[in-house]
Design a protein around this nucleic acid. Sequence first.
DNA 1: CCAATTTAATTCAGCCGTCAAAGAAAATAA
DNA 2: TTATTTTCTTTGACGGCTGAATTAAATTGG
Lengths: 413, 413
Amino acid sequence: MTETGPAEPAGCGPRLRKASDSRPLRLQVFEAVRSLGCLPRAEIARALGISAASVTAVTADLINDGFLEEGATAPPRDAARGRPPVGLAVTGRAGFVIGLKLSDETHTAILADFAGTILAEIAHPTSNLRKPPARILSELEALVAALLSQVALPLDQVAGIGIGITGLVDHHAGTVLWSPILDGRDFDLRAAARNRLGRPVFVDNDANLLTLSELWFGAGRELDDFAVVTIENGVGMGVVIDNALYRGARGTGLELGHTKVQLDGALCRCGCRGCLEAYLADYALAREAATALGHSIRAEHSPNAMLDALGAAARAGDEAAQSIFRRAGRYLAIGLSNVIQIFDPELIIVSSDRMTRDHADPEAILADVAALSPSGRHPGARVEIRPRGDFTWARGGAALALSAVTEQVLERA
Amino acid sequence: MTETGPAEPAGCGPRLRKASDSRPLRLQVFEAVRSLGCLPRAEIARALGISAASVTAVTADLINDGFLEEGATAPPRDAARGRPPVGLAVTGRAGFVIGLKLSDETHTAILADFAGTILAEIAHPTSNLRKPPARILSELEALVAALLSQVALPLDQVAGIGIGITGLVDHHAGTVLWSPILDGRDFDLRAAARNRLGRPVFVDNDANLLTLSELWFGAGRELDDFAVVTIENGVGMGVVIDNALYRGARGTGLELGHTKVQLDGALCRCGCRGCLEAYLADYALAREAATALGHSIRAEHSPNAMLDALGAAARAGDEAAQSIFRRAGRYLAIGLSNVIQIFDPELIIVSSDRMTRDHADPEAILADVAALSPSGRHPGARVEIRPRGDFTWARGGAALALSAVTEQVLERA
DNA sequence: CCAATTTAATTCAGCCGTCAAAGAAAATAA
DNA sequence: TTATTTTCTTTGACGGCTGAATTAAATTGG
C-alpha cells in the first residue's frame, strides 16, 4: 500500500465481482417451492417479494414443462376465508439424482427425486484396504446398479451423481488429492466416474457432504449460518454462510483438524505438531489406548477395536482410559470455541458416533466451550452433539447433485 | 435431523436467500469506473459483460446527473488505431466523505471525494485516558471541523462519515460494546455522532477499517480473497471473501485474538486462558518485560515505554528479552497458520508497527508458518508483514463511508 | 339462498433494462 | 484521398416483470 500525501488517482474500491448473478425468476420460484414443500402461488409471491402476476406466468410455464404440479394436499391456512389457495409442489418424476458415499467400511447410496424424496437406499460392506482407483470405480458402478434395480429406474434418467469420499478433495477440480481408501494421489474421480457411468458427477469431501445434508434436509434449514464439525478418522468442518456452503477462498480450506492448538504439540499424521486432529481423531486416541490398556490389548488390533475396548474400560471406571477421553473433550472444546470466535455461527452441529457413545461427558464439553468464550457478546452459539445416521452422507451427496443439477435442467428447453 | 426410511415430504434444500440482489446497472457502471479509475465505455462494457448500448445509455445519465465526466486523460491503448476511446472518470465533486479513527494516542481523519481522492488529512494528539462519551463526541466534532476548514467545505456537503474505534464494535447496530478509550459499555456511537454532526455515520472496529483500507486502496485491489491480521493492543483480523468484507454470521466474529492456542494457557484480558492475544498483544509482552528487564524498569512505566525498552534490550543482545519476542513470533505463526487452514486466502497482510520494528525475525515467522502447513496442497498463502501508515485507518473509514453511501446517493433523483 | 366479504389467481397494458445491428465519428495506413 | 480499424451512439425490438383491474372460489351473515 502506498502512503501518500493528498491525491492519487487511478481508481479505488473493491474490484468487480464477477457474476452479476440475478438468477432467473423461473429458478427462484422452483427453488422456493422445493424449499418450502407445498405452497400456493400467493405465498410464493410473498416469500420472494415479487408480483403475483409473475408467479402465475412462471408457474404456468413450470407446470407446463413438468417441473411443478398443483398440489394434492391443500396447505392449511390461518383465516379460513377467501378463495382457498392451490398448493404447488415439485413433480418428483421431473428428475432423479444419486447421492453416494465411499468409505472404508461401508459404501452407501441413495436415490432421490427432484422433490428431495428418497426413493431407495443401499449399503454395501467393503474391505478397509487401500484400493486402486479401478477397483473403487467398479464398486461404485455395482452400487449404482443395485440401487437403481430396486426401483427399476434406467441410469440415463439420473440427472446427476454426487459422490463423497474421505480425504483431501478439490471440489472444483473434481479430484481426490489424497484419500485413506485410495492408492495414489491426485485421482480425477469426477472424470473417471463420469466416463464409467456416463452421467454428470460431482465430488466433495465427507465434511462438506454432511454439511450439505444438514443444509438441505436437517437442522440447517432453519438457519442462515451454521457450522458442522465431524470427528472420526480425521476432524473435519463444514461452514454455511448465508445459506450457502462456504468452501474457502481457493477450494480447500476449513481444515479445522489442522488448526494448531498447542505449540510443539502432539504429532499429527499430516506431519505437523499441535494439530487439533492429533488430539481428537480416532488414531490419536488409539495410540494412547495401547498405553492405557497395557497388556490387555495388542497393538495389532484395529484402531476401531482398540477404541471400543478403551470406551468399555472408561465406562468400567478405568482412570487412564477416562483421562484420554477427558483430554480429548477439552481439546474439542477449544476447537469449537475457535470456530465460534471466527465464524460466530448460531449453531454448531458436532457429528460423531464415538463422541456420543463413549466420550465421558457432553455436558462437560459444552461447559468448557461456554467458559472459553469471552463474555459480553450475545448468547453464544448453540452446540449440539449428535450421532449420525448411516445414510446422512449419501443424502448430502444427493443434495450436492441437486444443487448442481437443478439450474441446468431448468434452463428453458 | 430425522432418520427415515424412504419418503418424507414438506420441502428440502436451503432456505431462500433474502435479497435477490441484482444491483442496478447504473450502480455497477459507476462502481466499475471508480474501481478502475479512468476507462472508456468500451472497456466498461467488456469488464461488466454487458452491451455497449447499455453503457452508452447509463453513462449518459450518470454524466447528466453529475456523477461521471468525460476524462481529461485518455487512457493509453495497445493498438493505436481506430477511434480513440474517451475515458470516463468519477466526478470528484459529486460527493465527499470523511474517514476517522479514534485512538488512545492520536485521532486521525481524512476527507475524500467520491473518486477516492484524498483532499485533506488531519491528526489530533489526545490523552490516553478513558473518556466519557460526551468528551469523545466533542473531540470528534473538533476534528471534523478542523479537517473541513482546511478546504473550506461545509459539513452538509459530506455524504457520510466512517468512524473506526478500537474495541468490540457491532457494525450493524452502530454500537461500541466495549472500548479501551471509552467509559461505560454499549454506547450507541452511530446515533450519538449522527445527532451531533447531523450527517450519516457508520461505525466499525479498527481491524475491519484496516481491511477496508486494503480492499479499497491497497493490495486487496488485486485479490478476490485475503485476510488482514493486526497486532497492537489486541490482536484483530479482517477477512475479505469474494471482494467483500466478511463480518461473521452475527456481526461479531473473526476474533482471531481470542482463538485458543494453548490448553490452560496464558491469561487473557478477556478472562479466558490460552487466547492468542495473551501471547502476542502489547500487554502480554509488557507483563513479561518487567521480569526480563528486572530492576532496570519500573512497573509504573507505560506499556509502550516498557516495550520500547524491551525491544532495545533485545537488539542489544539480551537473551531474556529476545526470548520474549521469539516466543511471540512462534505464536503468531500458529495464528497465521490457523487463518490459512480455515480461510485458505491468497494473501495475509500482517499489520504491525512493533513487529516490524522490534520482533527478532520476520523470516523466522514466515518459515514457521510454512512449516505448520501440511504439504500437498497448493503453494500456500503469501504472508506480508508490513508497517502501517498513520492515516491507513482513517482511509479505511472513508472506504466504509463510501461503500455505505454510494448506493443511496446514486438512486435516481 | 343471496349478497357481502375475503383471499387467490389471472389477464393485460406498459415500463425498464438489455441486446443486436447498423450507423456515425475519429484516428491511422496506404 | 480512400480504406481500415476501433470506439461510440442510435435505433428498434424483445423479454422479464409489475401494477391495476378482473375473474374465481371459498366463508360469513342476514
